[in-house]
Design a binder for these strands. Sequence first.
DNA 1: TTGACATGCAACTATATGGTTGCATATAGG
DNA 2: CCTATATGCAACCATATAGTTGCATGTCAA
Lengths: 109, 109
Amino acid sequence: MESVFKALADESRRELLDRLFARGGQSLNALAADLPMSRQAVAKHLAILEAANLVSVHWQGREKLHYLNPVPIGDIVRRWVGKFEDARVESLTGLKAELEAKEKKNVRT
Amino acid sequence: MESVFKALADESRRELLDRLFARGGQSLNALAADLPMSRQAVAKHLAILEAANLVSVHWQGREKLHYLNPVPIGDIVRRWVGKFEDARVESLTGLKAELEAKEKKNVRT
DNA sequence: TTGACATGCAACTATATGGTTGCATATAGG
DNA sequence: CCTATATGCAACCATATAGTTGCATGTCAA
């Protein structure tokens, strides 16, 4: 969970996920070819994405093919983000109630 | 968008969001009271959350009350995560097809 | 007015992070 | 076999980040 959040925090890694979303099964070299950084930098990012289980790999001889794995993102949405989303109306009305209560306390100003 | 991802990448800040979800309208001191870090550290985290629009504030005299704002998280889910979620089945079948194609190429081994 | 309290600002430190270069290893194919 | 190519590993560097402490500012309340 922590690793997924950290992995998603970097723009380069989100870019990589976007590219793997658009076209799965790309090798390290293919991905590094049109990115403004070295092959080794891309390899590091892919390792982080792999560790977070956001990217799965499949060795094809000397080529390592990369695929997007959307499952951890779904997990986050369901287990963490979902409750905030569900609570939207609730929290807004809660805010309103709190503010009104405080204002009442403040009347004697 | 970038600021939201970065803000969510830190465990302490997610903890703060959790606490504001459980109970809105807490002051800086109230939040810092039972966290294992200094008040100033909490203040920095809150500033980051505020900059990412994940927390909105309301001054009450000398107290700054904090509230969770779930809107940016919803934005991310809809504009960025959503497409990966929708693509789940598609990408899995795509993976399968790619693998089969590659295996066919490899038969002469 | 003045003391107590809540927050803000600034400087500083240690570690994490994203990037680089250089070299090692391993496999495809002539 | 031997060379091209694809990836891995390691050292190194600059900056970002998370935390600290110390002091300044501002507001409530007696």
